[in-house]
Amino acid sequence: MQQTRTVELGTGLFVFLGVGALFFLTTQTSNVQGFTGDSYTVTARFENVGSLAARAPVTMAGVTIGRVAAIDFDPDLLDAVVTLRLNSRYDRIPEDSDASILTAGLLGGQYVGLTPGGSEEYLADQSVIEFTQSAVVLEQLISKYLFQGGSE
């Protein structure tokens, strides 16, 4: 009887610890944020998205308010259509806000930064952000400086 109890207690402890570790790993080490709630999507057109990827963060004032849902190429207008999924908690973003593709650190990943405009109208589901600024491509920047240096 005593031995059975030890086995049961030990097994219980082991399974409890194992499931606890799995829970810790799945919730605490990865970037699955509490973003399963309501969200709305807006689109923005960019001339060049650089190395922006799906799931990249969308930030405003440095705070992540959404994620990039999809990036598509528009064959008619020859530009990139980026779909942004924003948290419904932030539903009062001025309609004339400006979206730019920024880089975190010198070699970090790229993200979309929103800068607020002054409009009284707010972005809603399916709205389009008019003002966008493309990603800075390092090679273009370098060649620009090179040619400027040559003309002086």
Partner: peptide
């Protein structure tokens, strides 16, 4: 049954 739980405990304690 034991192996996935042991691996998870190993990773958790390792972190």
């Amino acid at each position: 049954v034991s192996m996935p739980l042991l691996a998870a405990i190993f990773s958790g304690i390792g972190i």
